[in-house]
Amino acid sequence: MLKKLVLLFILISTSSFSQSNWQKFKKLSPSKRMWVLFHPFKAEKAQIISKEAYRVADSIKNSPLLDGDASGGQVDAFRHAFWIASLRQEIGKNAARSLGKAHEKENYRTYKKNKLEDGTIPDKIATTMDLFNNEIGLSLSKNNTKSSKIGLIYKVINAIHSGKLKVIKKDNNGNFLTCKNTSISQESLKGKWKNNKCLVNSNYKK
């Protein structure tokens, strides 16, 4: 760890790590700061890929390709799988996986602060969904393989339509359901990390 800290301070003192980057670093969650310490030369590339993945997911949300649900639905699943698949191509499998895990640790802190993440307060089942979909994303690409962006997008979409990813079960009105199809009230979800939401395959028909 000492070597990592020394390396970080060296980067800060050079043009490769600007003052603005230092400000961004300080705003990161502890888990993501730790990831940057262990992957200092991959951090900037990961940031660029992450922004692009969110931009692509936003475009997909407004298309008829998926269900339009960015909070527990197919678009949410797409965002994570596409993000991790893109990261693996550029920074490698292990670094991509560990960044995905760091992000989910950040979600728990968001829950503790009662703040929103993608429109809802994070919970345990959303984290389980994200980690599962991250692993599928890892399987859809390879290290240092420059697949076309369009090709990777459709690879992820096809995996979703084939039911290989996970989404959170909802009814046609967007209400969360238990695995026994019982509607879950918003009131019962308040302040709970663990709840009765249900994960289903990404080709689940409402």
Rank of each mutant, 00 (worst) to 15 (best):
Met1Asn: 13
Lys4Val: 01
Leu5Lys: 07
Leu5Gln: 09
Ile10Gln: 14
Thr14Gly: 04
Thr14His: 04
Thr14Val: 00
Asn21Tyr: 10
Gln23Met: 02
Lys26Thr: 10
Pro30Gly: 03
Lys32Ser: 06
Val36Arg: 01
Glu44Leu: 15
Lys45Met: 10
Lys45Leu: 12
Gln47Arg: 12
Gln47Pro: 00
Ile48Lys: 15
Ile48Arg: 13
Ile48Tyr: 07
Ser50Pro: 00
Glu52Pro: 00
Ala53Glu: 05
Ala53Met: 03
Arg55Cys: 00
Val56Arg: 11
Asp58Glu: 15
Pro64Met: 04
Leu66His: 07
Gly68Asn: 07
Gly73Pro: 05
Gly73Ile: 04
Val75Lys: 08
Ala85Trp: 02
Gln89Arg: 13
Glu90Trp: 06
Ile91Lys: 05
Arg97Asn: 09
Ser98Gly: 03
Leu99Gly: 07
Gly100Cys: 09
Glu106Ile: 00
Ala126Trp: 02
Ala126His: 11
Thr127Glu: 15
Thr128Gly: 00
Glu135Leu: 04
Leu138Thr: 06
Ser139Cys: 02
Leu140Gly: 07
Leu140Cys: 06
Lys149Asp: 06
Lys149Met: 06
Ile150Tyr: 04
Ile150Ala: 10
Gly151Gln: 04
Leu152Gln: 08
Tyr154His: 14
Asn158Trp: 01
Ala159Trp: 09
His161Arg: 15
Leu165His: 05
Val167Trp: 06
Lys169Arg: 15
Asn172Ala: 13
Asn173Ile: 01
Cys179Pro: 07
Asn195Glu: 06
Asn195His: 06
Val200Met: 02
Lys205His: 11
